[in-house]
Simulated scan of single mutants.
Amino acid sequence: MTDQERFTRPTTIQDMQERMKAFSTTEGWQKGLDYKPDPTDVFIVTPPKCGTTWMQQIVHGLRTRGSMDFDEITRVVPWINMAHDTGIDIYAPQVAHPRAFKTHSTMDEVPKGGKYIVVLREPKDALLSHYYFFEGFFFEKGSIDIETFAKEHHLPGRAVFKHITALWEYRNDKNVLPLCFENMKADLPRTVERVAEFIGIPLDDELKEIVVRQSDIKFMQAHEDQFEDHIIREKRSAAMRLPVDGQLSKVRDGQVGSAKLSVPENIKQELDEIWKNEITPKIGLNSYEDLRKELMH
Protein backbone atom coordinates (compact mmCIF):
# COMPACT_ATOMS: atom_id res chain seq x y z
CA MET A 1 0.00 0.00 0.00
CA THR A 2 1.37 3.41 -0.98
CA ASP A 3 1.45 6.38 1.37
CA GLN A 4 -1.37 8.02 -0.58
CA GLU A 5 -3.53 4.92 -0.24
CA ARG A 6 -3.10 5.21 3.54
CA PHE A 7 -4.16 8.86 3.66
CA THR A 8 -7.52 9.73 5.19
CA ARG A 9 -9.44 12.99 4.97
CA PRO A 10 -9.46 15.53 7.77
CA THR A 11 -12.38 15.40 10.20
CA THR A 12 -11.64 18.72 11.92
CA ILE A 13 -11.41 22.21 10.50
CA GLN A 14 -7.96 22.64 12.05
CA ASP A 15 -6.56 19.54 10.32
CA MET A 16 -8.14 20.61 7.02
CA GLN A 17 -6.60 24.07 7.20
CA GLU A 18 -3.19 22.69 8.15
CA ARG A 19 -3.15 20.36 5.17
CA MET A 20 -4.44 23.03 2.81
CA LYS A 21 -1.28 25.04 3.43
CA ALA A 22 0.24 22.64 0.89
CA PHE A 23 -2.50 23.23 -1.71
CA SER A 24 -0.13 25.46 -3.68
CA THR A 25 3.45 26.65 -3.46
CA THR A 26 4.37 30.28 -2.90
CA GLU A 27 6.61 30.15 -5.96
CA GLY A 28 3.91 28.69 -8.18
CA TRP A 29 1.24 31.15 -7.06
CA GLN A 30 3.57 34.09 -7.66
CA LYS A 31 4.48 32.88 -11.14
CA GLY A 32 0.80 33.23 -12.05
CA LEU A 33 0.60 36.74 -10.63
CA ASP A 34 3.77 37.70 -12.53
CA TYR A 35 2.28 36.75 -15.91
CA LYS A 36 2.41 39.55 -18.49
CA PRO A 37 -0.88 39.58 -20.43
CA ASP A 38 -1.50 40.47 -24.03
CA PRO A 39 -4.22 43.12 -24.38
CA THR A 40 -6.64 40.50 -25.74
CA ASP A 41 -6.07 37.97 -22.93
CA VAL A 42 -9.28 37.27 -20.99
CA PHE A 43 -9.21 36.72 -17.23
CA ILE A 44 -12.23 35.19 -15.50
CA VAL A 45 -12.02 36.77 -12.04
CA THR A 46 -14.23 35.28 -9.35
CA PRO A 47 -14.41 34.34 -5.70
CA PRO A 48 -14.53 30.54 -5.29
CA LYS A 49 -17.85 28.92 -6.21
CA CYS A 50 -19.32 31.96 -7.90
CA GLY A 51 -19.71 30.82 -11.51
CA THR A 52 -16.06 30.38 -12.48
CA THR A 53 -16.48 27.10 -14.37
CA TRP A 54 -19.69 28.35 -15.94
CA MET A 55 -17.90 31.39 -17.36
CA GLN A 56 -14.94 29.26 -18.51
CA GLN A 57 -17.42 27.19 -20.52
CA ILE A 58 -19.07 30.29 -22.02
CA VAL A 59 -15.76 31.88 -23.05
CA HIS A 60 -14.32 28.65 -24.42
CA GLY A 61 -17.53 27.87 -26.31
CA LEU A 62 -17.53 31.31 -27.91
CA ARG A 63 -13.93 31.10 -29.09
CA THR A 64 -14.19 27.50 -30.42
CA ARG A 65 -17.82 27.34 -31.64
CA GLY A 66 -18.64 24.92 -28.87
CA SER A 67 -15.68 22.53 -28.89
CA MET A 68 -15.90 19.99 -26.07
CA ASP A 69 -12.56 18.43 -27.01
CA PHE A 70 -10.96 18.64 -23.57
CA ASP A 71 -10.59 16.26 -20.63
CA GLU A 72 -11.07 19.09 -18.14
CA ILE A 73 -12.01 22.73 -18.72
CA THR A 74 -8.95 23.89 -16.76
CA ARG A 75 -6.74 22.26 -19.40
CA VAL A 76 -7.99 24.75 -22.01
CA VAL A 77 -8.76 27.69 -19.70
CA PRO A 78 -5.99 27.38 -17.09
CA TRP A 79 -6.11 28.52 -13.47
CA ILE A 80 -3.28 30.98 -13.75
CA ASN A 81 -2.27 30.85 -10.06
CA MET A 82 -2.12 27.04 -9.99
CA ALA A 83 -0.70 26.38 -13.45
CA HIS A 84 2.94 26.01 -12.38
CA ASP A 85 2.09 23.62 -9.53
CA THR A 86 -0.01 21.44 -11.82
CA GLY A 87 2.39 21.31 -14.76
CA ILE A 88 0.53 23.67 -17.10
CA ASP A 89 2.54 26.22 -19.09
CA ILE A 90 0.58 29.48 -19.11
CA TYR A 91 2.77 30.81 -21.92
CA ALA A 92 2.04 27.85 -24.22
CA PRO A 93 -0.28 28.48 -27.19
CA GLN A 94 -3.94 27.89 -26.38
CA VAL A 95 -6.39 26.05 -28.62
CA ALA A 96 -8.16 29.23 -29.71
CA HIS A 97 -8.08 33.03 -29.54
CA PRO A 98 -8.40 34.97 -27.32
CA ARG A 99 -6.31 33.28 -24.67
CA ALA A 100 -8.30 32.79 -21.47
CA PHE A 101 -7.47 32.13 -17.82
CA LYS A 102 -9.33 31.78 -14.56
CA THR A 103 -8.26 33.24 -11.24
CA HIS A 104 -9.63 33.69 -7.74
CA SER A 105 -7.31 36.66 -7.18
CA THR A 106 -9.14 39.98 -6.87
CA MET A 107 -9.00 42.84 -9.36
CA ASP A 108 -6.41 44.46 -7.10
CA GLU A 109 -4.13 41.43 -7.46
CA VAL A 110 -4.54 40.09 -11.01
CA PRO A 111 -1.91 40.69 -13.71
CA LYS A 112 -2.83 43.96 -15.40
CA GLY A 113 -3.06 44.63 -19.12
CA GLY A 114 -5.77 42.23 -20.33
CA LYS A 115 -9.55 42.00 -20.21
CA TYR A 116 -11.41 40.95 -17.06
CA ILE A 117 -14.78 39.26 -16.62
CA VAL A 118 -15.66 39.54 -12.93
CA VAL A 119 -18.48 37.31 -11.65
CA LEU A 120 -19.96 37.88 -8.20
CA ARG A 121 -22.57 35.89 -6.28
CA GLU A 122 -24.89 36.36 -3.32
CA PRO A 123 -22.59 35.73 -0.32
CA LYS A 124 -24.89 33.23 1.41
CA ASP A 125 -25.23 31.10 -1.72
CA ALA A 126 -21.47 31.32 -2.29
CA LEU A 127 -20.87 29.98 1.23
CA LEU A 128 -23.23 27.05 0.69
CA SER A 129 -21.62 26.12 -2.63
CA HIS A 130 -18.14 26.43 -1.10
CA TYR A 131 -19.10 24.06 1.71
CA TYR A 132 -20.50 21.38 -0.58
CA PHE A 133 -17.45 21.63 -2.84
CA PHE A 134 -15.09 20.98 0.08
CA GLU A 135 -17.17 18.21 1.66
CA GLY A 136 -15.99 14.76 0.62
CA PHE A 137 -12.62 15.89 -0.67
CA PHE A 138 -10.95 18.43 1.60
CA PHE A 139 -12.72 16.98 4.65
CA GLU A 140 -14.58 13.75 5.38
CA LYS A 141 -18.23 13.94 4.42
CA GLY A 142 -20.41 14.70 7.45
CA SER A 143 -17.51 15.46 9.79
CA ILE A 144 -17.62 19.29 9.72
CA ASP A 145 -20.94 21.14 9.83
CA ILE A 146 -21.63 24.22 7.77
CA GLU A 147 -21.66 26.55 10.78
CA THR A 148 -18.14 25.48 11.79
CA PHE A 149 -16.95 25.70 8.18
CA ALA A 150 -18.40 29.19 7.87
CA LYS A 151 -17.02 30.57 11.13
CA GLU A 152 -13.58 28.98 11.01
CA HIS A 153 -12.80 28.91 7.29
CA HIS A 154 -15.12 30.76 4.92
CA LEU A 155 -15.87 33.98 6.81
CA PRO A 156 -12.32 34.79 7.93
CA GLY A 157 -11.16 34.69 4.30
CA ARG A 158 -13.76 37.31 3.24
CA ALA A 159 -13.28 36.18 -0.39
CA VAL A 160 -16.61 37.34 -1.81
CA PHE A 161 -16.43 40.64 0.01
CA LYS A 162 -12.84 41.32 -1.06
CA HIS A 163 -13.83 40.75 -4.68
CA ILE A 164 -16.76 43.15 -4.37
CA THR A 165 -14.71 46.01 -2.94
CA ALA A 166 -11.80 45.37 -5.31
CA LEU A 167 -14.12 45.44 -8.34
CA TRP A 168 -15.80 48.66 -7.33
CA GLU A 169 -13.14 51.07 -8.58
CA TYR A 170 -12.83 49.14 -11.86
CA ARG A 171 -16.53 48.63 -12.55
CA ASN A 172 -16.68 51.29 -15.30
CA ASP A 173 -13.35 50.37 -16.91
CA LYS A 174 -13.81 49.46 -20.58
CA ASN A 175 -11.62 46.38 -20.06
CA VAL A 176 -13.76 45.07 -17.19
CA LEU A 177 -17.10 43.28 -17.52
CA PRO A 178 -18.78 42.97 -14.10
CA LEU A 179 -21.50 40.32 -13.86
CA CYS A 180 -23.65 38.72 -11.18
CA PHE A 181 -24.31 34.99 -11.06
CA GLU A 182 -28.03 35.65 -10.52
CA ASN A 183 -28.29 37.92 -13.57
CA MET A 184 -26.53 35.28 -15.66
CA LYS A 185 -29.03 32.72 -14.45
CA ALA A 186 -31.98 35.00 -15.17
CA ASP A 187 -30.93 35.75 -18.76
CA LEU A 188 -28.23 33.43 -20.10
CA PRO A 189 -28.70 34.44 -23.78
CA ARG A 190 -28.09 38.10 -22.90
CA THR A 191 -25.04 37.09 -20.85
CA VAL A 192 -23.60 35.23 -23.86
CA GLU A 193 -24.18 38.31 -26.02
CA ARG A 194 -22.41 40.58 -23.55
CA VAL A 195 -19.44 38.25 -23.13
CA ALA A 196 -19.06 37.77 -26.90
CA GLU A 197 -19.03 41.51 -27.50
CA PHE A 198 -16.62 42.09 -24.64
CA ILE A 199 -14.02 39.51 -25.76
CA GLY A 200 -14.36 40.39 -29.45
CA ILE A 201 -16.11 37.31 -30.83
CA PRO A 202 -18.62 37.92 -33.69
CA LEU A 203 -21.85 36.29 -32.56
CA ASP A 204 -24.11 34.73 -35.18
CA ASP A 205 -27.38 32.97 -34.36
CA GLU A 206 -25.87 29.49 -34.65
CA LEU A 207 -22.96 30.26 -32.34
CA LYS A 208 -25.27 31.88 -29.80
CA GLU A 209 -27.51 28.80 -29.78
CA ILE A 210 -24.52 26.47 -29.31
CA VAL A 211 -23.04 28.43 -26.43
CA VAL A 212 -26.36 28.98 -24.64
CA ARG A 213 -27.17 25.27 -24.91
CA GLN A 214 -23.72 24.09 -23.82
CA SER A 215 -23.53 26.44 -20.85
CA ASP A 216 -26.92 25.38 -19.56
CA ILE A 217 -26.78 23.59 -16.20
CA LYS A 218 -28.31 20.38 -17.61
CA PHE A 219 -25.71 20.14 -20.38
CA MET A 220 -22.87 20.75 -17.94
CA GLN A 221 -24.25 18.17 -15.50
CA ALA A 222 -24.42 15.65 -18.33
CA HIS A 223 -20.72 16.34 -19.02
CA GLU A 224 -19.80 16.71 -15.36
CA ASP A 225 -16.53 14.79 -15.64
CA GLN A 226 -15.13 17.48 -17.93
CA PHE A 227 -15.77 20.10 -15.27
CA GLU A 228 -14.21 18.26 -12.34
CA ASP A 229 -10.82 19.21 -10.84
CA HIS A 230 -8.93 16.08 -11.95
CA ILE A 231 -5.70 18.00 -12.41
CA ILE A 232 -5.72 19.54 -8.93
CA ARG A 233 -6.68 16.21 -7.40
CA GLU A 234 -3.94 14.29 -9.19
CA LYS A 235 -1.16 16.85 -8.79
CA ARG A 236 -1.78 18.25 -5.29
CA SER A 237 -3.51 15.50 -3.24
CA ALA A 238 -0.25 13.93 -2.06
CA ALA A 239 1.14 17.28 -0.91
CA MET A 240 -1.97 17.75 1.23
CA ARG A 241 -1.86 14.12 2.42
CA LEU A 242 -5.31 13.49 0.94
CA PRO A 243 -6.55 10.30 -0.72
CA VAL A 244 -6.83 10.74 -4.47
CA ASP A 245 -10.39 9.39 -4.63
CA GLY A 246 -13.45 11.52 -4.02
CA GLN A 247 -14.72 14.26 -6.27
CA LEU A 248 -13.99 17.91 -6.80
CA SER A 249 -17.11 18.46 -8.86
CA LYS A 250 -17.69 22.06 -9.89
CA VAL A 251 -21.18 21.55 -11.32
CA ARG A 252 -23.80 21.23 -8.60
CA ASP A 253 -27.34 22.53 -9.06
CA GLY A 254 -26.69 26.16 -10.04
CA GLN A 255 -29.57 27.29 -7.87
CA VAL A 256 -30.17 30.82 -6.68
CA GLY A 257 -31.35 31.29 -3.10
CA SER A 258 -30.59 27.79 -1.75
CA ALA A 259 -28.93 29.35 1.28
CA LYS A 260 -32.31 30.52 2.60
CA LEU A 261 -33.04 26.99 3.76
CA SER A 262 -29.57 25.54 4.33
CA VAL A 263 -27.45 28.24 6.01
CA PRO A 264 -28.01 28.73 9.77
CA GLU A 265 -29.72 31.99 10.73
CA ASN A 266 -26.81 33.20 12.86
CA ILE A 267 -24.43 32.78 9.92
CA LYS A 268 -26.79 34.65 7.60
CA GLN A 269 -26.95 37.45 10.16
CA GLU A 270 -23.16 37.53 10.40
CA LEU A 271 -22.88 37.83 6.60
CA ASP A 272 -25.39 40.70 6.69
CA GLU A 273 -23.35 42.40 9.42
CA ILE A 274 -20.18 42.11 7.35
CA TRP A 275 -21.97 43.79 4.46
CA LYS A 276 -23.29 46.56 6.70
CA ASN A 277 -19.97 47.22 8.44
CA GLU A 278 -17.43 46.54 5.69
CA ILE A 279 -19.11 46.87 2.29
CA THR A 280 -21.65 49.69 2.59
CA PRO A 281 -19.05 52.21 3.88
CA LYS A 282 -16.83 51.43 0.85
CA ILE A 283 -19.32 51.23 -2.03
CA GLY A 284 -22.42 52.96 -0.66
CA LEU A 285 -24.80 50.07 -1.36
CA ASN A 286 -26.85 48.51 1.41
CA SER A 287 -27.14 44.93 0.14
CA TYR A 288 -26.03 42.45 -2.46
CA GLU A 289 -29.40 42.91 -4.16
CA ASP A 290 -28.57 46.60 -4.60
CA LEU A 291 -25.23 45.60 -6.15
CA ARG A 292 -26.95 43.16 -8.47
CA LYS A 293 -29.28 45.91 -9.72
CA GLU A 294 -26.33 48.26 -10.14
CA LEU A 295 -24.51 45.75 -12.35
CA MET A 296 -27.55 44.60 -14.33
CA HIS A 297 -27.22 47.08 -17.19
Score class of each variant (00 low, 15 high):
residue 243 P to K: 05
residue 243 P to C: 11
residue 243 P to R: 01
residue 244 V to S: 14
residue 245 D to R: 08
residue 245 D to V: 05
residue 245 D to W: 13
residue 245 D to T: 13
residue 245 D to G: 00
residue 245 D to Q: 06
residue 245 D to A: 01
residue 246 G to P: 09
residue 246 G to T: 13
residue 246 G to C: 00
residue 247 Q to R: 10
residue 247 Q to K: 15
residue 247 Q to V: 06
residue 248 L to K: 09
residue 248 L to P: 04
residue 249 S to H: 04
residue 249 S to W: 00
residue 250 K to G: 14
residue 250 K to D: 03
residue 250 K to V: 12
residue 250 K to M: 13
residue 250 K to P: 07
residue 250 K to E: 08
residue 250 K to S: 04
residue 251 V to C: 15
residue 251 V to G: 04
residue 251 V to T: 08
residue 251 V to L: 05
residue 252 R to V: 11
residue 252 R to L: 11
residue 253 D to P: 03
residue 253 D to N: 11
residue 253 D to T: 09
residue 254 G to I: 02
residue 255 Q to D: 06
residue 255 Q to P: 08
residue 255 Q to R: 14
residue 255 Q to T: 10
residue 256 V to T: 11
residue 256 V to N: 01
residue 256 V to K: 00
residue 257 G to I: 02
residue 257 G to F: 04
residue 257 G to Q: 01
residue 257 G to S: 02
residue 257 G to N: 08
residue 257 G to W: 06
residue 258 S to N: 03
residue 258 S to P: 10
residue 258 S to H: 07
residue 259 A to I: 09
residue 259 A to F: 15
residue 260 K to W: 13
residue 260 K to V: 04
residue 260 K to I: 08
residue 260 K to H: 13
residue 261 L to K: 07
residue 261 L to A: 12
residue 262 S to M: 13
residue 262 S to Y: 12
residue 262 S to T: 14
residue 263 V to A: 08
residue 263 V to F: 13
residue 263 V to W: 15
residue 264 P to E: 02
residue 265 E to F: 13
residue 265 E to W: 05
residue 265 E to C: 08
residue 265 E to Y: 06
residue 266 N to M: 13
residue 267 I to G: 02
residue 267 I to C: 14
residue 267 I to E: 01
residue 268 K to G: 12
residue 268 K to P: 05
residue 269 Q to C: 06
residue 269 Q to N: 04
residue 269 Q to E: 05
residue 269 Q to W: 05
residue 269 Q to V: 01
residue 269 Q to M: 07
residue 269 Q to I: 03
residue 270 E to M: 00
residue 271 L to R: 07
residue 271 L to I: 14
residue 271 L to P: 02
residue 272 D to M: 03
residue 272 D to R: 04
residue 272 D to F: 01
residue 272 D to T: 05
residue 272 D to I: 01
residue 273 E to N: 09
residue 273 E to R: 14
residue 273 E to V: 12
residue 273 E to K: 10
residue 273 E to F: 12
residue 273 E to C: 07
